[in-house]
Amino acid sequence: MNARQVQLVQHSFAQVQPIAEVASDLFYARLFELDPALKPLFRGNMQAQGHKLMMMLGVAVANLNKPEVVMPALQRLGERHAGYGVTEAHYVTVGEALLWTLEQGLGEAFTAEVRLAWEAVYLLVAETMQQAARRMTTPEASPVRSSLT
């Protein structure tokens, strides 16, 4: 991800923020349309979930130039999502829903260059979260005490 991509993502997200509630509604509607089996993973108030989504995106986008801030937060998020039952395949569907939502929200401003920038950001986010989730589910992640000690 280069400086131009960061700028494009930050600028385009600023355009989406005023319609954050609509955008989150669009996102979840599209997500469940793409994969209805994901719906049971979301318990509770979807409006609150949408607010959390937009807040998390806002923090990640605002800190794209500060990996020391965004990476640990994404790792913790990936660990939590592993506990919710999120699989690596789900990240593909989420990425598709996110890009579709941005296209709907931004209209003509969602240019090919903006799309590529968001794809780069989402790839970084998804890979970071997935790596953290894998660490949570591998035998090395949970220390096993020897019965000999």
Rank of each mutant, 00 (worst) to 15 (best):
P40C: 01
F27A: 00
E108G: 10
M54P: 05
H51P: 01
R80I: 11
Y122S: 02
G105R: 03
V92G: 07
L31K: 06
G50H: 01
L77F: 12
L99W: 03
T128W: 03
V61K: 01
L57I: 08
V86L: 03
N2P: 12
E68Q: 06
G44C: 03
A126D: 04
A109I: 12
G50V: 04
E96M: 15
F42V: 00
G83K: 04
F110P: 05
R76K: 12
L53K: 01
H90K: 04
M71S: 09
A120P: 05
P72F: 09
M55L: 14
G50E: 00
L31A: 08
M55F: 11
V94H: 02
K39T: 06
V6R: 13
E103N: 14
L102P: 05
F32E: 00
K39I: 06
G83A: 05
Q130R: 14
A73Y: 07
A14R: 14
N2H: 13
G83N: 01
V16K: 05
R115Y: 08
L31Q: 03
V114L: 09
E88V: 05
R43Q: 02
M1W: 14
A73R: 09
P72I: 08
E108C: 09
K39A: 11
K66W: 02
Q7E: 15
Q17E: 15
E119W: 08
A132E: 03
L34Q: 04
Q130Y: 12
D35P: 04
V125Y: 10
V16I: 15
V121L: 15
V94K: 02
R30Y: 07
E79G: 10
G58C: 00
T93N: 02
A132N: 03
M129W: 07
P67F: 03
E113G: 10
Y122T: 00
F110I: 10
T137I: 12
A37S: 15
Q75L: 02
M136P: 03
K52N: 01
Q130E: 11
T93F: 03
A97I: 06
